[in-house]
């Protein structure tokens, strides 16, 4: 991607990475995790980061999620260069513009489902009680967990917990929802249901970017970013969907344009 392209796409992109490297320092050893990654994600996309274990999916999501910093390159989220932001501003950016869904749900154990979903709004302190509760209620209904509002996470199944987590991620109406292998800890039926939900929410306007190493999940993506050894192998598009089926059988074929 040349710089010309970068500029034009940057205008409307929610996520804009250019020539990003990420290296981990393990004592004296430098572990390269990402190399020369440039991507841009537009509003409304339903993008999957695919790749085998260790290919750098989590690292990439961490950089986009502003919980880690790139070694080199630029990470621009919703028009803001994250390298230039202070810790406090980054935290606020995560709160206001990003939604997170975690592989192991990561709900607060001592809060019930409703309170978990409500929590980011409490941190934001922008909505009044009435408005806040109405929004939480509506969201819980739309992800199908309204009847579990007063259950604590420990009393919920994995699928139910991930629904709570999805509601929590969406409650602030973020610009983009990031999810690192959101179905990895779920059985396939539940995983499929969660994906259905995410897709439905995407149709209603939420931008999703999530990682997976499950080919069946990849098959449902609107767009696929393939990682291998920390490099982008192929940026799939809506039109590339047809190729996905064969890609499962022979992952090496992913390298084809």
């Amino acid at each position: 991607m040349n710089s010309e392209n970068l500029k034009t796409s940057a205008a409307s992109a929610i996520v804009q990475l250019s020539h990003v490297d990420k290296e981990y320092q393990l004592g004296k050893v430098t572990v390269p995790a990402l190399h020369d990654v440039s991507i841009s994600i537009q509003a409304g996309e339903f993008t999957v980061i695919a790749g085998p274990s260790g290919s750098g999916k989590t690292t990439l999501l961490n950089l986009i999620g502003c919980v880690d910093v790139a070694t080199r390159g630029q990470v621009i989220i919703d028009g803001r260069n994250t390298l230039e932001l202070k810790e406090k501003e980054l935290t606020r950016l995560r709160l206001d513009r990003l939604g997170f869904i975690f592989q192991s749900f990561n709900l607060v154990g001592v809060l019930d489902a409703f309170q978990n979903v409500e929590f980011p709004l409490l941190l934001q302190k922008t909505l009044g009680k009435k408005e806040r509760e109405a929004r939480v209620q509506a969201l819980m209904e739309s992800v199908g967990i309204a009847q579990y509002a007063h259950h604590r996470p420990g009393e919920l199944s994995g699928g139910q917990r991930q629904r709570v987590a999805i509601a929590r991620a969406l409650v602030t109406k973020p610009r983009i929802v990031l999810a690192d292998e959101p179905t990895a800890n779920l059985d396939s039926v539940t995983g499929t249901a969660i994906l259905d939900l995410m897709q439905e929410l995407n149709r209603q306007g939420t931008t999703f970017l999530f990682s997976t190493h499950d080919p069946r999940v990849v098959a449902r993506a609107g767009r696929v970013i393939r990682l291998f050894d920390g490099r982008i192998e192929q940026a799939g598009t809506e039109s590339a969907r047809a190729d996905e089926a064969s890609a499962h059988a022979a992952p090496q074929a992913g390298g084809q344009p």
């Binding site: 406090k88 935290t91 990003l98 929590f119 941190l123």
Partner: peptide
């Protein structure tokens, strides 16, 4: 998790 979803230090 709480820090990730936007809780300040």
């Amino acid at each position: 998790t709480l820090r990730a979803i936007g809780m300040q230090r």
